[in-house]
Write a protein that binds this DNA or RNA. Sequence first.
DNA 1: GACGTTATGTCAGAATACTGACATGAGTCA
DNA 2: TGACTCATGTCAGTATTCTGACATAACGTC
Lengths: 152, 152
Amino acid sequence: MSQNGAGVDLETSLGYLLKEASSALRAAMEEVLRPLGMSVTHYSCLELLAQRPGLSNSELARGAFVTRQSMNVLLQALERDGYVTRPAKAPVGKALPTRLTPSGRRSLGAATAAVRSVEVRMLAGMTETEQAGAFRILRSMIRSLNDGDGNA
Amino acid sequence: MSQNGAGVDLETSLGYLLKEASSALRAAMEEVLRPLGMSVTHYSCLELLAQRPGLSNSELARGAFVTRQSMNVLLQALERDGYVTRPAKAPVGKALPTRLTPSGRRSLGAATAAVRSVEVRMLAGMTETEQAGAFRILRSMIRSLNDGDGNA
DNA sequence: GACGTTATGTCAGAATACTGACATGAGTCA
DNA sequence: TGACTCATGTCAGTATTCTGACATAACGTC
C-alpha cells in the first residue's frame, strides 16, 4: 500500500484520518440514537437548546453544522411533534427564540446518556494529557481552516 | 455559556470538536473543489482510484465513507462521463475492478493540488510533533469507536 | 429620513445519501 | 453434492441536505 507519493497519500493524511474519525463517531452515534428514533442532527438540536435556551433557527443551524434551511425543516417537525416551541412573532428582529418543551427535555434525557456513553468509549485508553492535546490540536485545525475562509 | 453540567457540554466535548473540525475541513474542500465542478465524494473516489487502482465499488464506498449504493450512483456517472472504466464482466466473483482513464487522471490533477493546499492550511502552525500526536490520537479514537461496533 | 449592508425566516426545487430488497458468485462445512 | 454464510452489484423508494431566491428587520452611514 502507498506505493506512490504523488497524491495526498491517504495512509498518512491527517485530513483523511479526521474524516474517518468523524465518520466513525457519527456511525456510533447513529447506532445508539436509532433505537430512540432520533438522528444525529435531531439530537444536536435538542442538546443545543438544552444548553443554550432561546437559540434562533440560524444559530441552531450553525451549532449543528447544517444550513439554516435544513434546520428549519427539522424545527418545523420538532414543533409539530411538541418537542420545541417558538413564538408566533419575533420579539426583536426576525429571529424566533426556540425553547424545549417538557416533552422535548424528556426525549433528550435518554439520548444524552446514550451519546455520552459513545464519547466515553471514544476516549477510552486516552490519558487526560492526551485528551487535552487532542482538544488543542483540533482547535488549531479549526482555526486555521476558518481563517482563510472567504476573505484573505 | 455552559451554565449547567447536565449535558455533554458542547464547549468541552471532544466529540463536538471533532465534528466541528471535520465540518470545517469539508467546507474548505467543497470551496476549492466547486470551481472544478467536483464534490468531496467525487474527489475521494478519484483519489482512491489513483492510489489503489482496481478497487471495487464496495471498496471505494468504504474508503469514501458512504454506502455502496451511493458510490454506485457516482461511479455510473463517472463511467458515463469517461473518467473511469469498469469491465462488463467480473474477472472473479461479482466485484468489478475500477480504473481511472487518462481523462480521469487529468481531472484529478487540479483537484489534488487544491485539496493539498487545504490540508497544508489546516496544518499551519502545527509542529511535526503535534502532527504526529494528532495522528496517534485520531487513530486511537477510531479504534475505540470501531471496537464496540456491532459485537460486544 | 434615505440608503446599503447584513442577518434572518421561509418557500421551492435539485442534488445527494440513505434504507430496504433482490439476485448472483465465492467460500465453508457436513 | 447440497446447504449455509458472506460479500458484491444493482434497482427502487425514501429521507435528508443542499442551493437559489425572496421578503423582512436591524444596524450603520450619509
